[in-house]
């Protein structure tokens, strides 16, 4: 086995060259390159993590914006509804007031007309009594020759009318 039988002759060379190559490896590759590669990996991981965090923040922001928009929309809808209701109520009120006013006017005019009619009726009745009294006086004068006054005739007419 050369590893054992040659050991006395070759150990110096083996150790010498191993220390040189392994030392170069350690300082050039291990200390020079590995930290840079590890740093690259770490930087990438940090970047990915940061990007994910930013995306999460953006998502939350979007949610918040949407929530605010929804709240705005709700408020606007409520406000519009209230305005519509108010306008409706106002319109109903004003219509009612107008109808009432028209009713009042109509009632007033009817009142006037009724009064006029009543006056006319009373006037007519009064003139009817006068006519009836004159007719009665004329009838009495013609039939009995008694000359009664208009007042007596009118009284008689009133009595007849009252007793029906």
């Amino acid at each position: 086995m050369p590893q054992i039988s040659q050991i006395a002759a070759t150990y110096a060379s083996q150790i010498f060259w191993l220390l040189i190559t392994f030392g170069l490896l350690y300082f050039v590759v291990g200390r020079g390159m590995v930290p840079k590669i590890v740093a690259t990996v770490d930087a990438r991981e940090a970047r990915v993590e940061g990007d994910l965090a930013a995306a999460e923040a953006a998502r939350l922001e979007a949610d918040r914006t949407e929530e605010a928009w929804r709240a705005d929309m709700d408020a606007a809808r409520t406000a519009a509804l209230a305005e519509t209701n108010a306008a409706k109520a106002q319109a109903a009120q004003s219509a009612e007031a107008q109808v009432k006013a028209a009713d009042a006017e109509l009632a007033e005019r009817l009142g006037h007309h009724d009064l006029a009619i009543a006056n006319a009726k009373a006037e007519a009745l009064a003139s009817l009594e006068t006519v009836a009294a004159e007719a009665a006086r004329d009838l009495v004068a013609k039939l009995s020759g008694v000359d009664v006054t208009v007042d007596q005739a009118a009284h008689a007419v009133r009595e007849v009318r009252a007793h029906g």
Binding site: T10, A12, S13, Q14, F16, W17, T21
Partner: peptide, 10 residues
Amino acid sequence: GYDLSFTNSA
């Protein structure tokens, strides 16, 4: 006194 030859191993 040490044999530091560049061997096939080196």
